[in-house]
């Protein structure tokens, strides 16, 4: 697994000759360009978040985090993630089971449809729910009559988040389960296991790391979503403001320390996500399958 000879890139390094690699000067130049680009575009923004958050000292940072509306925003963000991630988890497993374990007509089309939310602007993802449930919609008067509040409240925020994070789990699991085939399940079934037993004791252990990987990415997006949630939230402080929306409000009020304090919590979350993701890739790369990137 860790044998470096298995990686072709290491072979390049070990047996590099000028014919199949660049001259040292060209190498240094390319590396300089790559590092400079990454430093300016990725590292600097990240550093600025923490620099600004702690610019008035740790006291001001803690004060900003401890503020009533900030805590309400953190709670709402957690609540939204706790509802929407499991929904998409169940969907992801079900969709991957149907698509990976069976051959049926229209499978490719279904797979394309699952990826659809990725090609829709987040603002449009929010807009569709405003059109569906808003006062001027077909459903609007009916909802009002029955006292059901969806828009500018938690259900709307959850729906918009579910829309935006819809493909994450499914798109990790589908290629992984396709690669694993149906042999293990067929063996379990022929030995007398029923469907649920097969799933819990055979399939789930096979896909657990890939599942965790998908959930991790899904969760990061669910907690960080801005555009879609912004459209359906109504921006009521302490009520319908998630953390990213709270960052916007504080920033627009010229409360830089407050905005960056909340932002740094989100950035910390992003870093934890990246670390876990990298660990999963290094440790269980084969079990997550070669599906890197979007």
């Amino acid at each position: 697994m860790a044998d470096p000879e298995l990686y072709p890139a290491d072979a390049y390094h070990e047996h590099a000759s000028l014919a199949v690699t660049e001259r040292p000067l060209a190498r240094a130049g390319l590396m300089f360009v790559a590092f400079a680009f990454l430093a300016i575009f990725l590292l600097l923004p990240l550093v600025v978040v923490f620099e600004q958050a702690f610019s008035r000292g740790i006291g001001a940072f803690l004060e900003a985090i401890n503020e009533h509306d900030t805590i309400a925003a953190i709670k709402l963000t957690l609540l939204v993630a706790v509802i929407s991630v499991p929904l998409n988890l169940v969907f992801g497993v079900a969709a991957a089971w149907a698509i990976a374990k069976f051959e049926f007509k229209g499978k490719a089309f279904l797979t394309t449809l699952i990826d659809l939310p990725f090609s829709v602007s987040p603002v449009i993802s929010g807009l569709v729910y405003v059109l569906l449930f808003g006062a001027s919609s077909l459903l609007g008067p009916w909802l009002k009559m029955h006292g059901i509040v969806i828009l500018f409240a938690v259900p709307g925020i959850v729906l918009a988040t579910v829309f935006v994070t819809f493909p994450f789990v499914a798109r990790e699991l589908i290629p992984l389960m396709q690669e694993q085939g149906t042999g293990d399940e067929e063996a379990a079934l022929s030995l007398g296991a029923n469907g649920w037993q097969t799933f819990w004791h055979v399939t789930l252990p096979n896909i657990k790391w890939g599942l965790l990987y998908g959930v991790l990415l899904c969760n990061a997006r669910a907690m960080g979503e801005f555009g879609a949630v912004s459209v359906v939230s109504g921006h009521i402080r302490g009520m319908t403001n998630t953390m990213p929306l709270h960052v916007e409000i504080l920033y627009n009020e010229y409360n830089a320390v407050g905005a960056f304090a909340v932002a740094s919590v989100l950035a910390g979350l992003a870093l934890v996500t990246l670390v876990l993701k990298t660990l999963l890739e290094l440790r269980y790369g084969a079990e997550i399958a070669a599906t890197r990137g979007h």
Partner: peptide, 28 residues
């Protein structure tokens, strides 16, 4: 193609824009 110390960290860093909420990136 190249081997240098910290390559894995830099490789992981490339995914930062996927993980960092867009509003945070915006104000930064």
């Amino acid at each position: 193609r190249y081997r240098f110390p910290g390559r894995r960290v830099i490789d992981a860093m490339v995914d930062l824009p996927f993980a960092l909420p867009t509003a945070v990136a915006g104000i930064a």
